[in-house]
Simulated assay, not measured.
Amino acid sequence: MSSTSSPLAAAQLCYENVNGSCVKTAYSSGPQVILYTVFGFGALLAMFGNLLVMISILHFKQLHSPTNFLIASLACADFLVGVTVMPFSMVRTVESCWYFGQSFCTFHTCCDVAFCYSSLFHLCFISIDRYIAVTDPLVYPTKFTVSVAGISISLSWVLPLTYSGAVFYTGASNDGLEELSSSLNCVGGCQAVVSQNWVSIHFLSFFIPTLIMIILYGNIFLVARQQAKKIENTGSKTESSSDSYKSRVAKRERKAAKTLGITVIAFMVSWLPYSIDSLIDAFMGFITPAYVYEICCWCAYYNSAMNPLIYALFYPWFRKAIKVIVSGQVFKNSSANMNLFSEQM
């Protein structure tokens, strides 16, 4: 991003009177306003959009299902990215300086990694949920219960938080790179230096769940296509009530799988540039220009703001829930039992 701006000074420092201060890339007021507007909008959308998703699912009893509880927990992870990561990264990107101290830098890095991996794990469990729902819709309620969803949610939080804290708070991430870390992290900088071994583990932690999701959603859409053809071929025949019910259930599950499949694709598209850049950078001596790194980071961060937009576009119940929440009707005693579905399938 620095290539598109006009530096005001060649060698401004983040801290003018501090030895070892990082060099600051100063922007003119125009680019600064644009960048703060773009990044600030993303942070606000991640916060309030995901907050609406959580309130909708937790408040309205009609939305209490294992899949929706997973979606609400996913929204919580994205909400925390909007609260604890994006605002501070915005200042770091625009000012090219870290003004929040080294301790908070470590905390910020841990939150960044933990919440993003939490989102990935949630999406992986959601893909498993959708696979069972589409391939065996009538048995699905007995297989993926609320308790199973609870275990999935717990794993999606505990594993990333434990992993992130263990890697960054113990200093394991930069084993063997202490000198490079000291030279890169001047006063006013917050750059995580991760060794090749840990970068490889990070990449595999991203690649393996992503591969699982691709395989599952590939099978989901093959099964959905077969089901659609079967329904089309039997459409002219008189269906029994049992067959009709199966058709409605299958149609509903396919529609949910399609929407959540779009969410998974959006996640992969957003995070793939950052994951590939991190892997290449670690093996090439951290040569990625700062503006390229920041672009990759913000592509990934913006994913946390995209999911509520996807739900609003494809879920009529979410649009209706937003109207109820924003209008204040949510405070009525009877609102929790409100019907959010225009048609029951």
Rank of each mutant, 00 (worst) to 15 (best):
F115K: 02
V134P: 00
S119D: 09
W98C: 05
V83W: 02
S118T: 11
F121H: 08
T162G: 13
S96W: 05
Y99K: 01
T84E: 02
Y117M: 14
S89R: 14
Y131P: 01
D112K: 06
Y99S: 01
S96M: 09
F125A: 12
V146F: 12
S147K: 08
T106M: 08
G150S: 08
V83D: 01
T106V: 13
K143V: 02
S119K: 07
I153R: 00
V146R: 09
W98G: 06
L155C: 10
D129Y: 15
F144A: 06
K143C: 00
V94R: 12
E95L: 03
C110M: 12
F69R: 08
T109I: 10
S152Y: 09
T93L: 15
S152R: 04
M90D: 13
L120D: 13
I132P: 00
D112I: 03
L159V: 08
F88P: 01
T135E: 05
T84V: 03
F104Q: 10
Y117F: 15
Y131E: 07
L80R: 00
F104G: 06
S96C: 14
H122F: 09
C111N: 04
T93S: 15
N68S: 10
W157H: 08
Y131T: 10
W157A: 03
A133N: 06
F125H: 11
Y131L: 14
S152M: 12
S103E: 14
D112F: 15
L74R: 02
S152Q: 07
F121M: 11
